[in-house]
């Protein structure tokens, strides 16, 4: 039984089963390679990787919540910190830092100090437009979309006509883009996470059902 308080990323990383890092890196590499062969267009590969990440993210969030004991975040700033400090540590064993907040606290950068996905990788001339790690941005996008924020009142559309059934739930729509990528000659990996809006969802049942 896990302890009551939130657990640190290190503690979780130490306690879960892991696979050999090289196997992981090479498997991911083989996946990207196959996508390049199948889809031919680099831009399509970027999209596909993002979509794959998204599909992982919407599942991964539950594992994250179950293992980390993290409860609800007060605002997007806390959310970003949790992703960087607990999420990346727990699943990839790497540390990440959050910087470059904009004035309204809806956009920030997550900087990866190390990136296990890119060992052995060099981008050839034919793949210059490829975001090799685009799966990561998809994961973050998917996970946040499933997650309920708290600091949402300003964004909320309240459905008042069906009082009892007026039940909305909010998820975060985000846009995640790569600002810097070592494979493209930059000095670090920088992911920009931008909170677009928090979307209310309506109560699933109707009165007359």
């Amino acid at each position: 039984m896990p302890p009551a308080g939130p657990r640190s990323g290190d503690a979780i990383f130490a306690s879960v089963e892991r696979v050999n890092a090289e196997l992981f890196t090479l498997t991911y590499g083989a996946t990207v390679r196959q996508l390049l062969t199948d889809l031919e267009e680099v831009e399509e590969v970027n999209k596909q990787l993002d979509q794959m990440g998204y599909n992982i993210g919407i599942r991964l969030i539950d594992e994250f919540l179950a293992k980390s004991n993290v409860s609800r975040c007060v605002d997007f700033k806390e959310t970003a910190e949790v992703i960087a400090k607990v999420g990346f540590k727990m699943f990839l064993g790497i540390a990440a830092t959050v910087t470059n907040w904009d004035a309204d606290g809806t956009c920030c950068s997550i900087i990866l100090d190390d990136n296990p996905l890119v060992d052995f990788v060099e981008l050839p001339d034919t793949c210059q437009g490829l975001y090799y790690c685009n799966i990561l941005s998809g994961v973050i996008r998917g996970a946040l979309e499933m997650c309920l924020g708290r600091d949402i009142a300003p964004y909320l559309k309240i459905v008042t006509d069906t009082q009892y059934l007026a039940f909305t739930k909010v998820s975060m729509k985000t846009e995640v883009t790569w600002l810097r990528d070592v494979l493209r000659g930059d000095d670090a990996y920088e992911l920009q996470v931008k909170l677009l809006k928090q979307v209310p969802e309506e109560y699933p049942y109707k009165d007359d059902e």
């Binding site: 609800r72 309920l148 309240i158 008042t160 007026a166 209310p200």
Partner: peptide, 9 residues
């Protein structure tokens, strides 16, 4: 009362 409550609120 009856107005949508946000999860976590």
């Amino acid at each position: 009362l009856g107005v949508p409550q946000l999860p976590g609120q």
